[in-house]
Write a protein that binds this DNA or RNA. Structure first.
Length: 810
RNA sequence: GCCCAAGUGGCGGAAUGGCAGACGCAAAGGACUUAAAAUCCUUCGGGGGAAACUCCGUACCGGUUCGAGUCCGGUCUUGGGCACCA
């Protein structure tokens, strides 16, 4: 078959066939398949896109054949840093480069022959889209879920700008090599922590990979414990620490503040000031990852201050150390050397006291002992278990107001301000009189100006644009300034799935009546690298909009699948700099899209990915050729031996067909495309075997061939259409119901059993297909071969696995 | 460093705790052909054995079990994420 020629032939016919498109009037049997949209970074669709989009399209086509009204939209996550970097380097405007990339990628996506509903496309950089991203910001603001606070950014002094983590290489700015430091700026945050508990609670019901749910669970990081107040000596202030181990409170050796903690300046004594300042400066250079490394040496300096342990009145020194993070808990921790590895090392190093207050339940004094045990040296609490003590100590402190139960989350609020140009402007005006004032909804969008200057030093173009920055306060009319920042692109992608089904709505982001019927997404497909951020943000936004009565569902993505990562031939991640990028276009030009798609399905496990290799791509063309030959032959000879009585050979062929239907169906449901193709190959092999008989019934073979065309259609859509037409099919295969298997044709009267002695396979015997364990055992014992095998042995135990094996333990 | 995965022939990969290597690729041998391509047939984890057969084998070490690639504990390696790449 000419695989290249049929690509364009059928792509064109499909685009003209409205029956193949999503029907917006039918929502009861809708099936929303969504692939994470892509960032138009390079000028080309790369292999990874192809892998994800083509194979998910096969799944969508399968669902279509199962009778669903499939909705499969496509769009672009078009704002982002790379386009801006490109502009700084080349002077080409991000909008121009982005739109150009999009047009190339759209062409490649249509060449793929995927049944995307292009009428519903969206670009996040489009005014008609980001208008509603800004609307979303305003709703969150109204609801009290958007707020401002001081937060650190990576600051490059020479570029005079904040830079992304990605642009920090070895602690230096990737552009100019200047050492970066953390600078605190007032920025917008979304209060995702308000939803921490619900985001956690809803996880179990989601049909998501367990590992992804676990990662989100750990990311949210709920810990149940308590807060304890340590009063400062010579001050009215107190240090509040969060702990999950209040049972160790009697053993506190020191208290540590994060170097950024607000009290550090106030409590540091004059003789310690220079050391503390130097330490803080050094700590500002390290990333959180470096600071938390347990392999790193535990550094810290004494502030000179002391505080009082509320449970026993002991005087405790206050230190600062970079392993204590300002962003988690209260930014202060109590150090219990005897029962925490990190604290133990810290105390040994700085010669602080170590006091054992927990003893293992079965005794022992080896320190540090970090497990639960029994309280000792803890006054009236002695003898309580850690579990009891944790609660009892906090309850005691609650009476005096020096402590309280507290649930803490590792999850932090979502920082959405970006000091960049290529993003959705933040719809806020800063007025000297009224402060931060939201732009009225009727004035949206706040349009991103085009005529900006991309200075080589990387300063934010928006803040330098007078026409954009100067405005009047919507509240009092005074001269005011716009917020110079743009929104994190994750904000744009946190709601796009809600826009697709109603993408042309100019009055609202979406019509709730439509969206409540179209959502949740039935199958969401995308990379596992989004497990913690995008997927969590999208869940949060859905819940927030639900609480504002825009939506009536709790979760955006009912079912989720991650595709694996396709690596370069060298086994490394594909990248321009590594020179290992594979362009799918050359394979399409050589083999056609069906061969390429089927090869991707067969050669690489969808959820695993792996290094690219084109070994064997020819074999897939061979398989399709082989299938074509038998399908054509069966059709041409369809009248031959049509009245032949069915016998064992026919039953075998029908078994092969029905087994294939059963397996391929369940494989498609689980995205196990590689085994689905293997089962199709087996069916083709069975057809050849039958064809080799002298008196083969071609009417039957042709019937099987007809089913094969349908089964193969989601994997090789153009190929299947072509053969369907050749066989006289009048309408598209994708409007033809997917074959169902007949379970009566899958019943076999006998089964081959493996007979084991002490779990080692010795012989094989054919027994009846009974499920009755006792009957199978009796039948086996009657077999002469088994009798011979067991002669002279005494059987202690017999294990029968119906349909599989019998194990005699002797 | 922390969280989450993965590790099976020369290669891609199959295996609800039940016959490891389905289905393919590559390789070798053969048929057809003047020849090539295409197609078809056979072999194909390792050791031992003439053969029947037997022993070993799913990164490494240990455990649970009649039985472990699969479950548990530990180790190593690789990949993803670690909050301003998307």
């Amino acid at each position: 078959m000419d695989y290249i020629k049929i690509d364009s032939k059928w792509n064109e016919r499909w685009s003209k066939n409205d029956k193949l498109k999503f029907d917006p009037k039918r929502k009861d049997d809708k099936y929303y398949v969504l692939e994470m949209f892509s960032y138009p970074s390079g000028a080309n669709l790369h292999l990874g896109h192809w892998f994800n989009y083509a194979l998910t399209d096969s799944f969508a086509r399968y669902k279509k054949m199962r009778g669903f009204n499939v909705f499969q939209p496509m769009g672009f996550d078009a704002f982002g840093l790379p386009a801006e970097n490109y502009a700084i380097k080349t002077g080409i405007h991000p909008k121009d480069s982005t739109l150009k990339n999009i047009s190339v990628m759209e062409r490649q996506l249509s060449d793929m022959g995927a049944m995307f509903d292009w009428d519903y496309k969206l670009y996040t950089c489009d005014e008609n889209y980001y208008k509603w991203t800004q609307w979303l910001f305003l709703q969150l603001y109204k609801k009290g879920l958007a707020y401002r606070k001081l937060a650190p950014v990576n600051w490059c002094d020479s570029c005079n700008t904040a830079i992304a983590n990605e642009q920090v290489v070895d602690g230096k700015c990737e552009r100019c090599g200047t050492e970066i430091e953390r600078k605190h700026m007032t920025q917008w945050f979304f209060k995702i922590t308000d939803y921490a508990e619900e985001l956690l609670d809803c996880l179990p019901e989601l049909d998501w990979p367990e590992k992804t749910k676990l990662m989100q669970k750990n990311w949210i990081g709920k810990s149940v414990g308590g807060e304890v107040d340590f009063a400062l000596e010579n001050s009215d202030e107190k240090i509040t620490v969060f702990t999950t181990r209040a049972d160790t409170l009697f053993g506190v050796s020191f208290v540590v503040l994060a170097p950024e903690h607000r009290l550090v300046d106030a409590i540091t004594t004059p003789e310690n000031k220079s050391a503390v300042d130097a330490y803080r400066k050094e700590a500002a250079k390290a990333s959180d990852i470096e600071r938390q490394s347990t392999a790193k040496e535990k550094t810290g300096v004494f502030t000179g201050a002391y505080c009082i342990n509320p449970i026993n009145g002991e005087r405790v020194p206050v230190w600062i150390a970079d392993y204590c993070l300002a962003t988690y808990g209260t930014g202060a921790v109590m150090g219990v050397a005897a029962h925490d590895e990190r604290d133990y090392v810290f105390c040994k190093k700085h010669n602080l006291s170590i006091k054992q207050v927990i003893r293992p339940k079965n005794g022992g004094d080896a320190l540090p002992y970090t497990e639960y045990g029994v309280m000792v040296n803890s006054g009236k609490f002695d003898g309580l278990t850690s579990e009891q003590g944790k609660t009892a100590v906090i309850e005691q402190l609650e009476k005096s107001g020096l402590g309280r139960k507290k649930i803490n989350y590792r999850l932090r609020d979502w920082s959405v301000s970006r000091q960049r140009y290529w993003g959705a402007p933040i719809p806020i005006v800063h007025c000297p009189h009224c402060g931060a004032v939201p732009v009225p909804e009727k004035d949206l969008p706040v349009t991103l100006p085009y005529d900006v200057n991309f200075t080589p030093d990387g300063r934010s173009p928006l803040s330098l644009h007078e026409g954009y920055m100067n405005c009047v306060c919507p509240k009092c009319g005074a001269a005011a300034k716009r917020d110079p920042d743009t929104l994190d692109t994750f904000v744009c992608s946190s709601w796009y799935y809600l826009r697709y089904p109603d993408n042309k709505n100019s009055k609202a982001p979406f019509d709730s009546k439509i969206i409540n019927k179209m959502l949740p997404v039935d199958k969401y497909v995308g990379g596992a690298e989004h497990a913690c951020m995008h997927l969590l943000y999208a869940r949060f936004i859905t819940k927030a909009l639900r609480d504002m009565d825009y939506l009536n569902f709790d979760e955006p993505f009912k079912s989720l699948v991650h595709q694996g990562l396709i690596l370069g031939e060298d086994g490394n991640k594909m990248s321009k700099s590594a020179g290992n990028v594979i362009n799918p276009d050359k394979y399409i030009a050589l083999y056609g899209s069906d061969v390429f798609r089927t090869y991707l399905m067969f050669g690489i496990r969808f959820t695993e990915g792996g290094p690219w290799s084109d070994d064997g791509i020819r074999s897939v063309a061979k398989f399709l050729d082989r299938a074509e030959r038998i399908i054509v032959k069966a059709h041409e000879n369809r009248k031959l031996n049509a009245d032949k009585k069915s016998g064992g050979d026919e039953a075998e062929l029908e078994y092969a067909l029905n087994y294939c239907i059963k397996e391929v169906t369940s494989d498609f449901e689980t995205f196990s495309f590689n085994t689905a193709i293997a089962r199709l190959m087996e069916l083709v092999n069975a057809m050849y075997k039958y064809d080799a008989l002298p008196d083969a019934n071609y009417a039957l073979l042709n019937e099987v061939a007809g089913k094969l065309v349908l089964l193969i259609a989601p994997a090789a859509p153009h190929f299947a259409e072509e053969l369907n037409e050749l066989r006289g099919g009048k309408q598209s295969v994708f409007l033809t119901p997917y074959p169902q298997f007949d379970k009566n044709k899958l019943v076999k009267s006998t089964v081959e059993y493996a007979v084991q002695i002490n779990s080692r396979v010795k012989i094989k015997v054919t027994l009846s297909a009974s499920k009755d364990v006792k009957a199978v055992e009796r039948e086996a014992l009657d077999c002469p071969e088994v009798k011979e095998l067991l002669s002279g042995l005494s059987v202690k135990k017999t294990i029968v696995i119906p349909g599989r094996l019998i194990n005699f333990v002797v």
